[in-house]
Write a protein that binds this DNA or RNA. Structure first.
Lengths: 340, 340
DNA sequence: CTGAAAGCGCTAACAC
DNA sequence: GTGTTAGCGCTTTCAG
């Protein structure tokens, strides 16, 4: 009894392989492989015997070996800014992947360029069938050789810099236009914009679109457009500038979710009085007082389109590169319809 | 020219292998492997030559082949209810995995028992080093053979039924107690509970804990405890019962985030008057009016502990099974301190 | 319909 | 220090 103790408390007892199953069932390896892959050209009595052996031994085919041999992984990667945060695009990717019989390997870049690089290279080493990336940073030329080697890659939300790949993103300019015109229709003439840094692609596009709106209506651009870092201080300062300047704004467009939240936190109870339209929908937007009017991206469609583009690229590596722009829509809840 | 067109538009041009690198550098395969794995016993001039060849060919070692050969994957799986939603535990798992040099494969069970089963089996086939699961459903006996085969497995948030594995979860009873006593300290005697179905583990634990609180204070349990499905209708009915009955409650404890949100949506503007303490923190809880007082789970610690337990299990498969109960804490923001 | 044998790309004994 | 060789577990020509 005393000797047995150490004996069976061993590290993972090796799993059975196809050879073991073949021996157990008294057939050739090849036949087991056929049964595992549902090849119909196997006699029913063999099938039964082999399935029994598989169950008896609790055999699970080693996916890595199959992948190595067949060359495909049936797995796609998604390098997004955050898994584990509200991310309907990622949810849509996961759904689309599942429906297509693909495994999804999702990783967070955490807004870190170096980390994005590491994740992408790691995914290359894992020989994934393709990758969807929500790009961070400005320099993606290191992907050039991978693309040349045939890596199927799709950019989501932002284009990749320096390389030409399939891309899906929202119609930022149209969204800003919708927000601006909504507020104009509600009587506002001094409409301010606070948004993300112009070093970020979407921050650049949205700020530019907002300036274009102002110009088109003959409004002075000068003190109404405030792109920059999303910090409590910077957003607070921008808010002070637009609300307490000599010619205060009467309404506000916020350029993304983080800006919206920073503004609401800064305003506190005052938020009930300032007309706001936010870019990006916000979780619990309906529970705020007033409920938040937003320009919502069609994130579900963005994610689904990303997978579609990726599948098409995998199927036909030489097809022409495509950029899909997904429309945005407005969700009216109250904050954008306040009378100032 | 016309012939060339179809020629180089081929499917993924095969990637170079170690053999190619060895040929390019004029050395043996083994030496390339050594350099790739940073083996110090290689002459510096060889290292340089091989690294140059790797760069020239854009060689990336095939991770699958390495895994097949070495038997380890340096990858752990996480089967959680939802990725792509706010999930601090998953974020913590990802962080801990990264810091430990592990790749994380995260999948959503979507609250679907069948899907959980499929994901777990698929992870077994991929020969992951271990799995963290946030269990759904009641029957996990199908994991028995996998565990017997040495699969390292950790349950998070809820225990697995029928099998004995390492588990990490919150102190549900203590959390309910904190909420209850907080409201009592604010003068309430008729405190109601609305929460999840008692078929769900945490729903069961929390409802039981609430009943125990009532009993301990000599309050009648009868009409104050409302576990059940989280739907607008059911929660609405429960709310009506506790607020508009003959002896209405003056304060409410909600059993999880979804219940809290359903209650707030149902109450609408009335929410400003009903003292509420919610179990689970809620995104944007600070922006609600009143801001929401909650019993917050230490999700970051739960995730980190799950990875810790898993690593320990991988390192020492025979160690005794452990259950870690993580303390909860209260975040006071306003809703729980209302005078009714 | 079934069986023997080669090989996917890599690592690890073991000689040199 | 470096090279040769076997083999991880599977799929897949090719004969029977």
């Amino acid at each position: 009894m005393s000797a047995a103790q150490g004996g069976n408390a061993r590290a993972r007892s090796k799993r059975p392989t196809m050879v073991d199953v073949a021996r157990e069932a008294g057939v050739a390896l090849r036949t087991v492989s056929r049964v595992v892959n549902n090849d119909p050209t196997v006699g029913p009595e063999y099938v039964a015997r082999i399935k029994a052996a598989i169950k008896a031994l609790n055999f699970r085919p080693d996916e890595r070996a199959r992948q190595l041999r067949t060359g495909v992984s049936d797995t796609i990667g998604a390098a997004v800014r955050r898994i584990a945060e509200v991310n309907p695009a990622l949810a849509a990717i996961e759904r689309a992947a599942r429906e297509g019989g693909l495994t999804l390997l999702a990783s967070s870049t955490d807004f870190d360029e170096q980390r994005e690089h590491d994740i992408l290279i790691s995914m290359c080493r894992q020989r994934l069938d393709g990758i969807i990336v929500e790009p961070i940073g400005e320099s993606h030329s290191y992907l050039e050789p991978e693309l040349a080697a045939g890596l199927p890659l799709v950019a989501m939300d932002r284009p990749l810099s320096g390389v030409s790949v399939d891309t899906v993103m929202s119609d930022n300019a149209a969204g800003i236009g919708m927000a601006f015109h909504h507020l104009r229709r509600h009587g506002h003439r001094r409409i301010a914009y606070i948004g993300d840094d112009e070093r970020v692609f979407s921050g650049r596009e949205r700020a530019a679109a907002f300036r274009a709106c102002l110009l088109a209506h003959g409004e002075p651009v000068g003190d109404l457009v405030h792109p920059g870092e999303i910090t409590a201080e910077r957003v607070g300062a921008a808010l002070d500038a637009v609300l307490h300047g000599p010619d205060p704004a009467t309404a506000l467009v916020t350029g993304n979710m983080d800006t919206t939240l920073a503004v609401l936190r800064r305003l506190g109870p005052e938020a009930t009085r300032l007309p706001i339209v936010g870019f990006d929908d916000v979780p619990l937007a309906d529970l705020l007082r007033p409920a938040l009017t937003v320009v919502a991206q069609d994130t579900a469609r963005i994610g689904a389109t990303a997978v579609e583009l990726l599948r098409a690229r995998i199927a036909e590596p030489a097809r022409p590169v495509k950029t899909v722009v997904v429309p945005v829509s407005m969700t009216i809840r109250g904050s954008g319809e306040l009378r100032s």
